[in-house]
């Protein structure tokens, strides 16, 4: 029972990490129509920058938590302005391939800057120990990850459902040309959405670094799981993405614990089944260009 409880917390925190990453991916895919295969690389940069900040310049994890997502957001801004904006006329598929090429480039850039060793970021001392809930000890940091993830989920939901910007994004998800026709600067929306995605991915990277470690090809592993979440959750709803990320996080963690040989197999099997029977995802809406 103890172990199951611990695995439950691990699964939930992993799921919420996936949520932070997939939210950006899903927003970008929904609005820009580009499946950003370099999204995992942004996450990886978040983790590596957090490592550099905590290991060399400052010892503060909290500073890294603020600064790293901003740097990643700037990288995302550069990617959108330099690579994607001039190429919208090429069509979505070409752009997906561009981001795929970019993921390759970023992979080697990271390994040439940070080397190919496994690195780690220390858990901040204030979140180090364990907390006892229902007579059982849980690592505080995992609980904090769950907490941060839930805050982000609520924040994103509030922005998307309750603000004018959220209304523009929701409108963009269902009909891009129409909101362009209503006098909204769609190109600015594209840029903003891409940068928000970058911030979320960077944040995910920083938060994940103490738990999952930092190593080359971490971005591809996470990207693939994020794609799984994207497919299972469907596009356009925060709730769908949240449900799917928790599901994938739990399935991944528990199957790794109970049936280690089958863990990836189960996750992808789940995705295949859902894609075939519910192509729009568990809670996803029908999106215009799907």
């Amino acid at each position: 029972m103890d172990i199951l409880g611990a695995q439950l917390v691990n699964g939930l925190s992993y799921g919420l990490l996936l949520f932070m990453i997939t939210c950006g991916l899903s927003l970008i895919f929904g609005i820009l129509g580009v499946l950003n295969l370099a999204h995992g690389s942004l996450y990886m940069f978040g983790a590596y920058i957090a490592y550099s900040l905590t290991a060399t310049y400052t010892q503060s994890f909290w500073l890294a938590l603020v600064v790293a997502p901003i740097i990643v957001a700037l990288i995302a801004l550069a990617v959108e302005r330099i690579l994607l904006r001039p190429t919208y006329h090429l069509g979505h598929l070409s752009q997906v391939l561009l981001t795929f090429g970019l993921a390759y480039v970023f992979h080697d850039l990271a390994s040439s800057v940070w080397g190919s060793n496994v690195l780690s970021v220390a858990v901040p001392s204030s979140l180090a120990g364990t907390a006892t809930i229902f007579g059982q000890a849980f690592p505080v940091y995992r609980l904090a990850v769950i907490f941060i993830g839930l805050i982000i989920a609520v924040l994103l939901w509030a922005i998307q459902e309750k603000t004018k910007w959220g209304a523009i994004i929701r409108a963009g998800l269902s009909d891009k040309e129409m909101i362009g026709g209503l006098g909204i600067n769609i190109k600015l929306v594209f840029t903003v959405v891409f940068v928000i995605g970058g911030i979320l991915a960077g944040l995910g990277g920083v938060v994940a670094a103490p738990v999952l470690g930092i190593y080359p090809s971490m971005e591809f592993e996470t990207l693939i799981l994020a794609l799984v979440v994207l497919v299972i959750g469907g596009l356009g709803t925060i709730g769908g993405t949240l449900a799917a990320s928790l599901l994938v996080g739990l399935v991944e963690t528990f199957s790794r614990f109970l049936l280690p040989e089958l863990s990836m197999f189960l996750v992808f099997g789940l995705m295949a089944v859902i894609l075939v029977f519910k192509p729009n995802g568990l809670l996803g809406k029908q999106v215009a260009h799907s």
């Binding site: 690579l83 391939l97 561009l98 795929f100 090429g101 970019l102 993921a103 390759y104 480039v105 970023f106 992979h107 080697d108 850039l109 040439s112």
Partner: peptide
């Protein structure tokens, strides 16, 4: 991989 990615782009 950097070269390959750049060639693709």
């Amino acid at each position: 991989m950097l070269i390959l990615g750049a060639v693709l782009i």
